[in-house]
């Protein structure tokens, strides 16, 4: 599906975030449009997760404005349009009593009306989300017994079950084997290309997905936006941001 450059999903202007007099993010401005696939990279402690948390309303910016679907963050109510998969997705407590179906069904909770149980439509959307993530056969398994790669797909199915327009993923690859990771990138690509879901993805694996993504944001207190990710790896900006030779980062990523 083509990218719609008319209406930004996120419209961020002059965002600053300071905590205990330490600047975490400085003067960040960007727009993310419907249908885009944006990857966010940057060194640890560079502010990637903070930025994402501000977009989701979990942290308040020190200054600057965030608009979501044209509305100020405070006035924005349709949060089900945004699917969030946090960093710790693969690290959930293994004794939490939840089957895969229990977790994916949570994706419908915010949309339901009180007093009403899951409708036929809800059940179908949940089933559809599980099909897309290829986890239907795990339906009755406890999430605690799943592998890292399986859990990751369950978390995304939960996000998909709210029928989001945009998926925001914060490095959900912790503890996931290489093969599952490759499958995971294919799935993201498919969601973006075939379903038209906008994707914002914090990752370290930029070398692997450089072909899939549309734009690359490098965040290290400031943001540098690169419209041609394939060239980004040799960008001078990269070395400035990391403070080391960018080629080293590139090579390092291919060792995995």
């Amino acid at each position: 599906m083509p990218i719609n450059f008319k209406v930004p999903i996120f419209d961020i202007k002059n965002l600053n975030f300071t905590i205990r007099e330490q600047k975490i993010l400085t003067d960040i401005s960007f727009e993310i449009f419907a249908g885009e696939y944006v990857a966010i990279i940057g060194p640890n402690g560079g502010g990637k997760t903070t930025l994402i948390r501000m977009l989701l309303g979990l942290e308040k910016p020190t200054s600057g404005t965030i608009k979501i679907f044209g509305k100020k963050l405070k006035e924005f109510k349709k949060w089900y349009k945004i699917g969030y998969v946090p960093q710790r997705a693969s690290l959930i407590d293994s004794s939490f009593p939840a089957s895969v179906l229990d977790i994916v069904s949570m994706g419908r909770v915010a949309k339901r009306k009180l007093f009403s149980s899951a409708t036929k439509e809800d059940k179908e959307i949940v089933k559809d989300a599980m099909q897309k993530m290829d986890i239907c056969d795990l339906k009755d398994k406890m999430v605690g017994t799943l592998s890292g790669g399986q859990r990751q797909r369950v978390m995304i199915a939960r996000a998909l079950a709210s029928r989001p327009k945009i998926l925001i993923l914060d490095e959900p690859n912790t503890g996931v084997d290489a093969k599952s990771q490759r499958n995971f990138y294919l799935l993201l690509k498919k969601l973006n290309k075939e379903e038209g879901i906008t994707i914002v993805f914090i990752t370290h694996d930029i070398g692997v997905i450089a072909d899939d993504i549309g734009r690359l944001f490098t965040i290290n207190q400031k943001a540098i936006i690169c419209n041609d990710p394939k060239k980004a790896m040799s960008c001078e900006d990269m070395s400035k941001l990391y403070g080391i030779d960018a080629h080293l980062i590139h090579n390092h990523k291919h060792e995995h």
């Binding site: 989701l56 309303g57 979990l58 949060w79 089900y80 945004i82 969030y84 946090p86 959930i92 939490f96 939840a98 977790i103 949570m106 994706g107 909770v109 915010a110 709210s162």
Partner: peptide
């Protein structure tokens, strides 16, 4: 299950 994810939903 997850307070933050519930909030962002």
């Amino acid at each position: 299950y997850d307070e933050e994810v519930a909030k962002t939903s």
